[in-house]
């Protein structure tokens, strides 16, 4: 029962803030809604018995990625001139509605197995064991990817020698 209430409240929060992310004229407000959406999704994870993933979501998405996006926004805009225009409005609505209809139709029409059993709660230990045994190679590849993106970002964003300012 409490799970259902939490689910509906959090879904409402996530969808409303996501709507604001894509529709808000003021891009700074859209960024703040994005953070609200991330926190809502973290709540969904906690509802799914994955508190560690929820904490990671808050730490990485809300605390780092969103702040980085806001940072990029602040560096590329004049103060308080945050109004945005948009294009391809009809095509966007058409594609999104089509996508939603196809997905929801598929989900509603499919027969789901495995959803009747008692869900289990994963600890951090099972995750760690998985990363250190089955998924070790992918784990290392992701680590390499992070290193590459770190260096790539530094090289791309740094100022050229003798450029202005």
């Amino acid at each position: 029962m409490s799970e259902a209430i939490a689910f509906y409240v959090l879904s409402g929060l996530v969808l409303a803030s996501a709507w604001s992310v894509v529709r808000n004229e003021n891009l700074f407000h859209a960024g703040l809604s994005l953070i609200l959406c991330f926190v809502g999704v973290a709540g969904i994870y906690v509802n799914l018995d994955a508190p560690f993933l929820g904490a990671m979501q808050v730490l990485i998405y809300a605390g780092a990625i969103a702040v980085l996006l806001l940072f990029g926004f602040m560096l590329t805009h004049d103060l308080m001139n945050a109004k945005q225009e948009r294009n391809q409005h009809a095509a966007g609505i058409f594609a999104a509605v089509l996508m939603a209809l196809v997905l929801i139709g598929t989900i509603a029409g499919a027969q789901w197995y495995g959803s009747s059993g008692q869900p289990v709660k994963f600890g951090v230990e099972s995750l760690a064991r998985r990363y250190m045994q089955q998924d070790l190679v992918s784990f290392e590849v992701v680590a390499l990817l992070l290193l590459a993106s770190l260096m790539g970002a530094v090289v791309i964003a740094r100022k050229e020698e003798g450029s202005r300012d």
Partner: peptide
């Protein structure tokens, strides 16, 4: 279904936003 709706909203945003951020 929640995830499908969120995905569609994201798709709409990608198609209609002009600003890179």
């Amino acid at each position: 279904i929640l995830s499908a709706l969120l995905f569609s909203l994201g798709l709409y945003g990608v198609l209609t936003r002009r600003n890179a951020i």
